[in-house]
Computed example of a mutant assay.
Amino acid sequence: MEGHHLKGSKGELVSSAGIIVTGFRTMLIAIAIAIAIVAGAVAVAGRWYTHKSHQQTERVFRRKQDRDRERAELTREGQVTGRYVDAIKLLASATPRATRRHLQSRKNKEQQRA
């Protein structure tokens, strides 16, 4: 890169060339280490964020699951109650007719005996 600074007037390396090259290499390594540290910090932050996001998603899922379970239970109870009410209505409406039929058949049998 800066080869003209490392060579003397006759084209040979100057005595301080080793120091300059070593300093340049050290700088490149320091930059690479800094980049690796920043990349590591970003990876750790990403992992932490993902973990927290996953925990939040699990909490929301559990709440929805509980809510759905409660709704299903209420629906089942409502269906059972509705069926019970319908059965009672059916019994209430059918009982007088059935009783009348039963009484009428008893009368008919008694009249036939007499």
Rank of each mutant, 00 (worst) to 15 (best):
E2A: 08
H5A: 05
H5T: 05
K7S: 00
S9Y: 04
S9E: 11
G11R: 03
E12W: 00
V14H: 01
S15G: 08
S16L: 07
A17D: 05
G18K: 14
I19W: 07
I20H: 12
V21P: 00
G23T: 05
G23L: 06
R25W: 13
I29H: 07
A30L: 10
I31S: 08
A32E: 10
A34Q: 09
I35N: 04
A36M: 09
V38G: 00
A39V: 12
V42K: 05
V44R: 03
G46H: 03
G46Q: 03
R47Y: 11
S53G: 08
S53D: 12
S53L: 15
H54W: 06
Q56V: 10
Q56C: 01
V60I: 15
F61Y: 10
F61K: 06
R62I: 13
R62L: 11
R63I: 08
R69W: 14
E70H: 14
R71L: 13
R71F: 05
A72V: 06
E73Q: 10
E73I: 02
L74A: 13
L74Y: 15
L74F: 12
R76V: 04
E77G: 04
E77F: 07
G78M: 03
G78F: 02
Q79K: 13
R83A: 06
Y84W: 06
D86L: 15
A87V: 00
T95Y: 06
T95I: 07
P96Q: 00
R97W: 12
T99C: 01
R100A: 15
R101M: 12
H102S: 12
L103Y: 05
Q104M: 01
R106Q: 14
R106P: 03
N108W: 11
E110F: 15
Q111R: 06
R113K: 14
A114G: 10
